[in-house]
Amino acid sequence: MADEGANPEKEAEKKIVHTYPLVKHSDMNEEMRTEAIEMSITACEKYSSNYEQAARVIKETMDKKFGIYWHVVVGEGFGFEVSYETKNILYLFFGGNLAILLWKCS
């Protein structure tokens, strides 16, 4: 049992290493992407316990900066199939267990 317990711990250690934001899919231009990533990260760090609040903040900021009708999903497990205005999607992992999806569709 002790051994079994140790293994997950090691894995956990490994996991902890990868907390940087990992862009899984995005077709935004470079400038927009960096800004969106930074902003999502700050929001998620700030409201780490309240994903809804985080999503709301991200959405509102994006609306302000890049025009309205952004949609944001923040969560640990969900499935999605969205249609978006091309060049306006960002799907990234953050913190090792969090997926953030931003897309624009008006």
Binding site: L22, F78, G79, Y91
Partner: peptide, 21 residues
């Protein structure tokens, strides 16, 4: 109208882990 695209995926913990790895 601005061009649109489609994208879909499933967010699962092990997928996140795999992609990080």
């Amino acid at each position: 109208p601005p061009p649109r695209s489609q994208y879909g995926a499933n967010v699962l913990q092990w997928k996140i882990y795999d992609s990080y790895a």
